[in-house]
Amino acid sequence: MHQEEKQNSEQTEEGLLYTYNRELFYHFDKEKGFSREIDYQVPANQTIIRQSWDAAEQRLDEVRSLIRAGKRSPIAYYMEKTLMEIPILADYMEMGKWRIRRHMKPKGFKKLKPEILEKYASIFGISVDALKNPEL
């Protein structure tokens, strides 16, 4: 029942966003039993995938305004930009989470040694220059 509804309401409204690759999906029908089909993600699923990208974009906007207000360092910006969270970044940096938190503030960022700046830059995939002067 909801199968047809999906076709009519969603497809015309938003269309398919992601058509990079077709995946295998299982289906069940009382008469026909189980079946497999290769197709793009249905619009309903694409909506929920996009929601997480929208949320990431929104978090990035919040960090941008915090940096402009002088409350966060570029580390916080690039962390959001590469979709990381403090525990993941701490893991990559091989440091305690509390140190990462300190580096995310302008005061802590200013005191960073060149080696540590370089390590951050290589994890974010950018140059040290870009790390110091982010294009917000």
Partner: peptide
Amino acid sequence: RAFSYYGSRNCKK
């Protein structure tokens, strides 16, 4: 699957 279909309506921008 129906649950995720109805649920996704709440997740639109």
